[in-house]
């Protein structure tokens, strides 16, 4: 059930943002800034692009998504709940003892999670494995992998990038959530991964850029990416960390902290 109406997708994104704040506030921990920056990317993929069926979460022909920046789990959980993989009430259990919504996604616990993640830098390699396996089975799965821009500092990302182009994994689409911030500050000040586009290009990728909060443009770029053959694609999505909550926007300190009562009310009012 593909949603093509832009307003509807925007409404879904607003719900995701509210869910992120609710989850992190109730858990009194989590990563709101990083979650808020990849909302539209996830909304477009899950509601407009991916071949998936929440009633059959293990369907072999399904497209896969690896949230390699696993700390953005509140965004993914909201999306999966809205898709119907599990009851929306469960979002309140995020990070609580005995929950299925672990701090970082756990594929054994939660339906809809295609890969456990949390230790940065590994998701792209796993995605390469999935893309290779899909080709071997002569299936048509698209493999999507969302990485953070700070995550590009992990050396394994570039081992995987080499593999993706070496094996011509044109069924693989990497999305860099390029919000320019990591825990210790601006990416270029902590350990500069730029130029991101030229790096991927030299590794043999088709490199695309998009406003990561513009749903219409995201749909277009994902459609375009599907046409690329014989090489993997990376979409560098220009995003704003903390997007949608004024006092969290472009603030590294909101990478991984929960809002207090007042901040919570303020954030929800803005959404």
């Amino acid at each position: 059930m593909k949603i093509t109406n832009i307003e509807e997708l925007e409404e879904i994104s607003r719900n995701v943002r509210r869910d992120i704040i609710e989850q992190v506030y109730k858990a009194k921990s989590g990563h709101p800034g990083s979650s808020l920056s990849c909302v539209e990317i996830l909304a477009v993929l899950y509601f407009n692009q991916m071949n998936i069926n929440p009633k059959e979460p293990k369907m072999e022909e399904r497209d896969r998504l690896i949230l390699s920046k696993g700390h953005a789990s509140p965004a993914l959980y909201s999306i999966l709940a809205q898709k119907g993989y599990f009851p929306k009430e469960e979002l309140k259990d995020f990070r609580k003892l005995g929950c299925r919504l672990q701090g970082h996604p756990d594929l054994k616990k939660l339906p809809g999670v295609d890969m456990s993640s949390g230790s940065l830098g590994q998701g792209l390699s796993v995605a390469c494995g999935m893309a290779l396996a899909s080709k071997l089975k002569k299936q048509k799965n698209k493999i999507y992998c969302i990485v953070g821009d700070g995550e590009l500092e992990e050396g394994q990302i570039w081992e995987a990038a080499m593999t993706a182009s070496h094996y011509k994994l044109d069924n693989l689409c990497v999305i860099v959530d390029n919000n320019n911030l990591q825990i210790d500050g601006k990416i270029e000040n902590v350990m500069n991964p730029k130029p991101i586009d030229k790096k991927f290009e030299s590794f043999g990728f088709e490199v695309l850029e998009v406003d990561g909060h513009n749903i219409e443009k995201l749909i277009k770029i994902f459609e375009y990416a599907k046409q690329i053959q014989e090489k993997p694609t990376v979409i560098i999505a220009k995003t704003i960390k903390g997007k949608g909550v004024s006092f969290m926007e472009n603030k590294a300190e909101w990478h991984g902290k929960a809002p207090n009562d007042e901040e919570y009310k303020n954030a929800i009012n803005q959404l």
Binding site: E60, Q122, V126, C128, G129, A133, K137, M162, T163
Partner: peptide, 16 residues
């Protein structure tokens, strides 16, 4: 690239 080796294998395993 042993780190990549192990994680690629993980991805392959998810396809049975």
């Amino acid at each position: 690239a042993e780190q990549n080796l192990i994680s690629v294998a993980a991805g392959i395993a998810t396809f049975n």
